[in-house]
């Protein structure tokens, strides 16, 4: 909803700006210059390492462009098993996260709006709570069977993913008219489970996909917990392999980063196109 409103709002503001006297129009030019400067500096800081990483990935010993590093990734020892372990952990973490967070967030939005503040705060804790202290406590308190299983990591990743997943779902639910949808579904005889699966979730696709991608990204990038519980996930493999060939470590890191980014950006673009179409349909209808 917010995305539908925003373009109209900015057009209105611009309309006002055009009618304003010249003196104040001049005044507004300086912030625009300042903004360009800020964006440029940010672009250099954030993109330079990425370009460097890409060059590092796609060059051979002579500095020429080649796929040799990328091709040799596939034949690295233990990389396959590290990747497979990470994929399994990511899938489990994702399933548990969704099963836990979707019903809870929907319920809070629908019935306990006062709890949103508490939820905001509780789901912030994992950002500031040191993962390393979490490991300390977990290794001392959890049952042995769980401590000896790699899937313990998945359960902990659910906690780490909470801040981003909750915010994504919260924003998604805030943008739809949840109460009306639920009432409509109820009056048509839908039970809560079919309301959730067939009415609410289809309206949350974007929020859900971005929550899923962020969870997967987190599992693939997480190092502290995996390293200290001694499971060789992909990022632990990267560190332990680092001594042998710097090109390969950087290449794997870059592929992980770009993979997530491209996935998320694709979602964003598709969503933008969809919401523009909706807007167009709306304006032609009215």
């Amino acid at each position: 909803m917010a995305s539908l409103v925003a373009p109209i709002g900015t057009e209105e503001v611009e309309g006002v700006a055009e009618e304003m006297p010249i003196a104040s129009a001049k005044r507004r030019r300086r912030p625009r210059f300042f903004r360009g400067f800020v964006l440029l500096v940010a672009a250099v800081y954030f993109l330079l390492p990425l370009f460097a990483g890409l060059k590092y990935t796609f060059e051979d010993a002579n500095g020429d462009f080649s796929f040799s590093t990328v091709r040799s990734i596939a034949s690295q020892p233990y990389l396959g098993s590290a990747l497979w372990l990470t994929v399994r952990l990511a899938v489990l973490a994702m399933v548990v996260t969704m099963a836990l967070m979707i019903p809870t967030t929907v319920y809070v939005h629908l019935k306990l709006p006062k709890m949103r503040r508490v939820m905001d705060l509780v789901t912030l804790l994992p950002i500031v709570f040191p993962p390393i202290v979490l490991v300390l406590g977990v290794l001392k308190t959890y049952p042995l069977a769980l401590r000896n299983s790699p899937y313990l990591l998945s359960l902990l990743y659910v906690i780490l993913a909470m801040p981003f997943v909750y915010r994504s779902l919260d924003a998604g639910l805030g943008a739809i008219d949840l109460k009306t949808l639920v009432e409509a579904s109820k009056s048509l005889g839908g039970r809560w489970i079919s309301t959730l699966l067939r009415v609410i979730l289809p309206n949350l696709t974007t929020a859900l996909i971005s929550a899923v991608v962020l969870t997967i990204a987190l599992v693939f990038a997480e190092f502290t917990l995996a390293y200290l519980t001694q499971w060789q996930t992909i990022s632990v493999w990267i560190v332990q392999f680092n001594g042998t060939d710097g090109h390969i470590t950087v290449a794997v890191s870059m592929l992980l980063l770009l993979g997530t980014w491209i996935l998320l950006s694709a979602i964003v673009v598709v969503d933008l196109i969809r919401s523009r179409q909706k807007l167009k349909r709306r304006t032609t209808a009215s």
Partner: peptide
């Protein structure tokens, strides 16, 4: 969203390469 999650070892190695 991606970069805020992207601390850790991957980032460290990309910076070392850069």
């Amino acid at each position: 969203g991606v970069l805020a999650n992207f601390g850790g070892v991957n980032l460290a190695f990309i910076f070392l390469a850069s």
